[in-house]
């Protein structure tokens, strides 16, 4: 069984969560990679343990974007639990409910 329905809330959750995740990992990652060492998200240290190069983008900003993406998915999940969706073909006639106008 699968449903192919998406509504505005699905689209918003996908766009916002995906945007944050891709920005936090790929977008800022491109900046970090091509803007000289470090190419990762941690400072470069020499043999004496001294920091010789700091990341261009603060890793806390990047992890915040990733966590934000997860929180969007959580909010979406809570919304879906609170307001379940009736799938096509499974809805029942409910006399108490007036048809929407």
């Amino acid at each position: 069984m699968q449903s192919n329905d998406v509504d505005l809330v699905d689209r918003l959750a996908m766009a916002l969560s995906g945007g944050l995740l891709l920005l936090g990992v790929v977008g800022t990652g491109l900046v970090e990679t091509f803007d000289g060492p470090p190419r990762g998200a941690a400072p470069v240290t020499n043999d004496a343990g001294q920091v010789v190069a700091q990341p261009t983008v603060d890793p806390n900003v990047r992890t915040a974007l990733v966590v934000g993406a997860l929180l969007v998915l959580l909010a979406y999940a809570l919304y879906r639990i609170a307001v379940p969706r009736v799938e096509a073909g499974t809805e029942r006639a409910t006399p108490e409910t007036q048809p929407g106008d």
């Binding site: 069984m1 699968q2 449903s3 192919n4 998406v6 699905d10 996908m14 009736v86 799938e87």
Partner: peptide, 8 residues
């Protein structure tokens, strides 16, 4: 519905 959502 607990079916798989195709778009998701």
């Amino acid at each position: 519905g607990l079916e798989l959502s195709g778009p998701w």
